[in-house]
Amino acid sequence: MDQQSEKYEDKADVIDNEIRKRYYKWHLHAIAWFDFDDVAQIIRAHIFKKWDQWDQGRPLEPWVNKIISNQLKNILRNNYSNFARPCLNCEHNQSREQADGQLAALCAFTPSGLQCNECDLFAKWQKTKKNAYDVKMPLSLEFHAYAQNTNPSDHFDISRATSTLHSKMMQVLTPRHFFVYKMLFVDGISEEEVARILGYKSNEKGRKAGYKQIKNLKNQYKNMAKKIINKEDIFYE
Score class of each variant (00 low, 15 high):
Glu237Ala: 04
Asn219Cys: 09
Met183Gly: 07
Ile43Arg: 14
Ile68Cys: 04
Asp10Trp: 10
His46Trp: 00
Phe34Tyr: 14
Leu88Asp: 10
Pro175Trp: 10
Asn89Leu: 08
Lys136Asp: 01
Ser112Gly: 09
Leu165His: 06
Asp38Thr: 03
Tyr146Met: 05
Ala32Gly: 10
Phe156Cys: 10
Leu60Thr: 09
Tyr236Trp: 04
Val180Tyr: 04
Ala30Leu: 10
Gly210Pro: 05
Arg176Lys: 12
Tyr200Asp: 00
Ile214Gly: 01
Ala84Cys: 03
Glu61Pro: 00
Phe179Met: 14
Asn82Ser: 03
Leu198Asp: 01
Ile31Arg: 12
Phe48Gln: 14
Phe122Cys: 02
Glu6Lys: 15
Ser81Val: 11
Lys182Leu: 02
Ile234Asp: 01
Glu237Ser: 03
Val194Arg: 07
His27Val: 05
Trp33Asp: 09
Phe122Ala: 02
Leu198Gly: 04
Ala99Thr: 05
Ser5Asp: 04
Lys73Gln: 09
Glu97Lys: 14
Lys201Trp: 00
Glu193Leu: 12
Ala45His: 06
Ser140Thr: 03
Asn74Lys: 14
Val194Glu: 05
Ser159Trp: 08
Arg58Leu: 15
Glu192Ala: 15
Asp187Gly: 03
Thr128Trp: 06
Gln220Asp: 14
Ser159Lys: 14
Ser167Lys: 11
Gly199Thr: 08
Asn151Glu: 13
Leu173Asp: 09
Leu184Ala: 15
Ile228Arg: 11
Gln171Tyr: 02
Glu118Asp: 08
Gln115Phe: 00
Leu103Val: 14
Ile229Thr: 05
Lys130Gly: 05
Tyr146Lys: 06
Gly199Met: 10
Met1Gly: 07
Ala84Gln: 11
Tyr221Cys: 00
Leu88His: 13
Trp54Asn: 07
Ser202Pro: 06
Leu141Gln: 13
Trp54Thr: 08
Ala209Asn: 15
Lys218Val: 11
Asn216Gly: 12
Leu88Trp: 09
Glu91Val: 07
Thr162Asn: 11
Asp120Asn: 12
Asp233Ala: 07
Ala104Trp: 00
